[in-house]
Design a protein around this nucleic acid. Structure first.
Lengths: 194, 194
DNA sequence: CTAGTTATTGACCACACGGTCCAAAACTTG
DNA sequence: CAAGTTTTGGACCGTGTGGTCAATAACTAG
């Protein structure tokens, strides 16, 4: 009934996300996006509505992807919950120390958002809470296992892990090397000492 | 011998810094700066050279100020080193949960810098290391006091504190409230349990 | 094949951007 | 007061911006 699209939305959002991850929202131009995605301005505009909307889409996908990855790492496997978190943190240290390490769209959105009522702020806040929920789930298991001090406040500790990973992301960005970042991760895991 | 300036550099850099802290480098326009500082484009240009240079100046001042504040908190007072760090972390939790909390220029520069060779990256990396040094100094005292586990790697733990404070900054920005942030700070301090 | 619908393309636009020019102003020194 | 020097203010400029338009292409249902 109508001319079909030449592109797959998912791919376009993904390409756009990479550009945004490198440049940030404000510093990415429509032309950058046109070049990265391969489609024309008007097609971009028809399909998504504009730069900001496209960023929001990419942000949502990035957030889902990140949540999925953490879930995967923390909810499966036969190691104990604490061991799973340990493994995850060490993997994050490596990930964040990759020299091409781009900063996540969530962190970008957090920094570039203006004011509480900004839509970026809403999405990122939800993202933070989602992440904390995932950590919390795993920590609750560990707590039930008796692997955490009895007086542990699980939701707070979950938020602590979100904080330390965000901090490690920034440190990696600033050039802190893999060894140092791994050491930071190990220090962070000291909260588990019973 | 010549017409005197109507402004004080320090004040101008400070005003500019506030604008940058709110909007970021890319999203701040020259006109924003003109309005915030009160002087004309040409004067700005004469005195500093351009937007980016002015940002660099503001960044340096922000970094010095931050380092000074942390030094002040960690190196003086009659509480023990560990207690000083504890107090500092709790104060940071409050600071970062202020709803108008602007994100520090260092974090901004970290996120907005492009590539390792970027001048922004150089300055921020130095800033991170300076901060870690300050934490390290205080931690070394604590270690000598026997307040830290004997096997503590002091420089690494110092970097850990830089990471957790950066993470808390981001969390505060995302709307995490004072109570939650304080709890995170307390969790972070668990590394001190002997 | 035709009508209807949507996607694509590239030209186009108004505007805001960072930056520059230049004439006038404000000051110090002799 | 005059010469010399720097600052200032505002008009100005080329460029790149996000976004729009209108003509055309590509497809499907009938």
């Amino acid at each position: 009934m109508a001319r079909p699209r030449k592109f797959v939305e998912r791919d376009v959002v993904s390409s756009a996300g990479e550009v945004f991850a490198v440049n940030g929202l404000a510093a990415t131009t429509l032309d950058d996006l046109v070049q990265a995605t391969g489609l024309g301005k008007q097609s971009l505009y028809n399909a998504f509505g504009g730069k900001r909307e496209l960023f929001l889409r990419a942000l949502s996908e990035d957030r889902e992807e990140a949540a999925r990855a953490v879930s995967e790492a923390l909810e499966h496997g036969d190691a104990s919950p604490v061991e799973r978190i340990r493994g995850h943190m060490l993997r994050m240290a490596i990930e964040f120390s990759r020299s091409d390490s781009r900063v996540s769209l969530t962190t970008r959105a957090l920094v570039e958002s203006t004011g509480e009522s900004d839509q970026l702020a809403t999405v990122t806040k939800a993202g933070i809470e989602q992440l904390a929920g995932i950590y919390g789930h795993c920590l609750a298991l560990a707590h039930a296992n008796g692997d955490l001090p009895a007086d542990t406040n699980v939701p707070s500790l979950a938020m602590y892990f979100v904080a330390i990973t965000r901090g490690m992301e920034l440190l990696g960005r600033s050039g802190v090397d893999r060894g140092a970042l791994t050491a930071v991760a190990l220090d962070a895991l000291r909260v588990f000492r019973t």
